[in-house]
């Protein structure tokens, strides 16, 4: 009897924990989160554009993020926006690093 009570209590506690986890995951990303993440990615990509070095993968990730948001999947939209921002920042780094590093490749 005592064991059963313990088992039921543990089960209930786990269920509550799992349910709250699911709710918090479901509630993780809102449209506002997506808009903020997308805007940050777009700003970084525009900066890469000024350096004449945008990456096709950044553009694709931004398109996919928009598509996910239009479908109401804001978790996916936020993740893709963050991915796009990381790619755009890498392209900016590449441009900055190559400003002088290209000379090492030159045939002399």
């Amino acid at each position: 009897m005592r064991n059963s009570v313990i088992r039921i209590s543990v089960f209930c506690a786990m269920s509550v924990l799992l349910a709250s986890g699911a709710i918090s995951a479901w509630a993780a990303s809102t449209e506002a989160d997506y808009k903020a993440a997308y805007s940050a990615a777009e700003t970084a990509n525009n900066e890469a554009g000024k350096l004449r070095n945008q990456w096709t993968t950044t553009v694709s990730a931004l398109k996919d993020a928009k598509k996910a948001a239009e479908g109401g999947d804001f978790d996916k939209a936020v993740a893709l926006s963050k991915h796009a921002e990381a790619l755009a920042k890498a392209s900016i780094f590449q441009s900055t690093e190559q400003k002088d590093a290209w000379k090492a490749m030159e045939i002399k």
Partner: peptide
Amino acid sequence: GKKYFYTRRGQLNFSCA
């Protein structure tokens, strides 16, 4: 033009060279 030829670009980090 020379700079463009030797500068790495794109996610694959390739230059023309």
